[in-house]
Nucleic acid binder design. Structure first.
Length: 563
DNA sequence: ATTAGGG
DNA sequence: CCCTAAT
């Protein structure tokens, strides 16, 4: 992949975004790197996500651990490319005519010029078309070519696992690549790009302008773990590589097989490795984890005091814990022991039944932050297990366009990855112990985009129906999400994917329930559905299964087709 | 124990 | 999500 280093700047963008922000001072230093590099245009419209995925045919072990990672990464890359393209386009057009259109229409309402907001989709497709004419003379060509080019572009795990692993460890001095051979370095991305990545990863927008925060979040989402080094954000093979000469985290030195099972435990500063064979668990303490916390804490925006309602709900919902979200009025003060021992748990979030996030609470924190009179909810049992994917609520996000207040309270929930299965899980399971009546609700666990992607990935590998397989493969770390859940979710996805708005209409105002699920994913679902001859009941027109979708999947279960 | 479906 | 029937 080629990076255009001619130092073109991305004007307005960040400034525009960087509105008056309190507690973001530390971010200024990073501004410099906002000059974006521009990626080479690659003819990959439409097909995007999931296309050149992992080769499942060989059934190589590498993919089994986190096959979804590849998909996620690819998706991110696609998005980034798109962003860059748009960026270029803007520059080409004399810029500023397309102010912040890239940001969700629903967020921005209308721009400063009073132009009517264009729907995301429309805008993007517009871009795409133009770009297509510019960059890919032969767009409708066979996809094989495309695949080829992508091949160089992305490094597929299969070959890399062994040969590259050692490489990964030693390698340390190549600061200037942002994406290379399947690795991704979030460090070089502008806020805007980070925003897109965020959206791509979690399916929703964010308005957080703090780079560190964004990077961390995206990183977490991408790797499905919380072992995010403080220094840099280069993700390689789903693991982080520290660029600096700081202590090299154990991750990269861990045998791949095991590495795949890395899970966090106790606190973000601890790794818990679980070997398949043995039930071995060893923990490694890391010292930079602490400052991580500080960083993050400082980075995040302040929230408003919890309302009474909040408190009530909180007590009702014996919710799970989350990672510190909001807080700290001054980062420096936090520097004392506070986080050292009890690193996480500063804040809590509650989800209503519909999976919508309601509020955040700050358990008692060392002096800084708010203290919520939350009903005596002291954590019982051992410290929370790790945290993994950000919960973003699939449906809705349309709440209020005026980002100002609400947004920041966004669901930065972290789902915990129950390393412990079953009873041990204390609080999270909202299972009303009512053996008698028998009606216990499992507390709706909103599906994360990451999870959805994993699911799709799983289906593509194992095939629909083999839920337990998929469970083991892709969801081993999620103790909730039973095979049945997977099945149900798939069913829903199926329905959603084939329920595409028949006539392109009214999408603007009220987006559907599945809004947050990237079209690409739905597209993939559709493809898979077809392959498996899963035809949803009432599918009349089937909308547009045109060019892109069919034939573009040369991966999957039918090697015959590929060769 | 897993799946498929209906509720 | 839950529950049940069928494998």
């Amino acid at each position: 992949m080629k990076v255009d280093g001619d130092g073109r700047f991305v004007p307005a963008t960040d400034d525009e975004v960087m509105e008056v922000e309190d507690l973001l001072e530390d971010d200024k230093s990073e501004k410099v790197e906002d000059a974006g590099q521009i990626l080479e245009c690659v003819p990959t419209e439409g097909t995007l996500f999931g296309k050149p995925r992992v080769k499942i045919s060989n059934g190589l072990p590498q993919s089994e651990g986190d096959a979804g990672y590849t998909a996620r990464l690819e998706y991110i890359e696609e998005v980034l490319q798109k962003v860059k393209r748009e960026e270029r386009l803007r520059l080409a057009c004399g810029s500023l005519n397309y102010p912040s259109a890239y940001v969700d229409g629903d967020r921005k309402g209308s721009d400063q010029h009073g132009r009517l907001p264009v729907t995301d989709e429309k805008f993007q497709s517009q871009i795409s078309l133009q770009e297509i004419s510019h960059c890919s003379p032969s767009l409708n060509e066979n996809h094989e070519n495309e695949h080829g080019s992508l091949g160089n572009f992305l490094k597929h795990p299969d070959k890399s696992v062994e040969s590259e692993s050692s490489d990964a460890i030693c390698t340390t001095s190549k600061p200037d690549f942002s994406m290379l051979k399947g690795d991704i370095c979030l460090d070089n991305l502008s806020i805007r790009e980070l925003h897109e990545c965020f959206k791509a990863t979690f399916g929703r927008d964010t308005t957080v302008k703090d780079k560190s925060w964004l990077k961390r979040r995206i990183a977490m989402g991408l790797t499905n773990s919380c072992d995010i080094p403080a220094s840099s954000f280069i993700i390689k093979e789903g693991k982080f590589i520290e660029e600096s000469s700081q202590n090299v985290v154990g991750v990269s030195t861990i045998p791949t097989a095991e590495a795949l099972n890395i899970e966090c435990s106790g606190s973000p500063t601890t790794y818990c490795l679980e070997t398949k064979d043995h039930h071995h668990i060893e923990e490694i303490e890391l010292d930079h984890g602490i400052e991580d916390q500080h960083e993050e804490r400082a980075a995040v925006k302040r929230i408003r005091k919890p309302t009474r309602r909040y408190i009530e709900e909180l007590s009702e919902v014996e919710s799970r814990e989350y990672v510190p979200k909001v807080i700290s009025l001054n980062k420096s003060s936090v520097s004392d022991g506070v986080s050292a021992n009890s690193i996480e748990r500063p804040s809590k979030k509650v989800c209503s039944d519909r999976g919508r996030t309601v509020i955040t609470r700050l358990d008692s924190l060392g002096g800084s932050g708010v203290q919520v009179p939350c009903v005596s909810r002291v954590r019982r049992s051992r410290p929370r297990k790790d945290i993994v994917a950000l919960v973003f609520t699939l449906p809705d996000k349309d709440q209020n366009p005026s980002v100002k207040d609400t947004n920041e309270v966004e669901e930065k929930n972290l789902e915990e990855k129950p390393t412990d299965s079953g009873n041990a899980s204390d609080d999270n399971a909202i299972i009303v112990p009512t053996p008698k009546s028998g009606s216990r609700r499992k507390h709706h666990r909103a599906w994360t985009l990451v999870e959805v992607i994993k699911l799709v990935e799983g289906v593509s590998i194992c095939g629909a129906g083999r839920w337990s397989e998929i469970k083991k493969l892709s969801f081993s770390s999620y103790s909730y999400r039973t095979s049945v859940d997977l099945k149900d979710k798939w069913r829903n996805l199926l329905k959603a994917s084939f329920a595409q708005t028949p006539v392109g209409e009214g999408m603007s105002s009220r987006k559907h329930v599945s809004v947050s699920i990237p079209e690409q994913i739905l597209l993939q679902v559709r493809e898979l559905a077809e392959m498996h001859a899963q035809i949803p009941p009432s599918n009349h027109g089937q909308g547009k299964l045109g060019g892109v979708s069919s034939g573009s999947n040369m991966h999957e279960i039918s090697p015959a087709v590929c060769l």
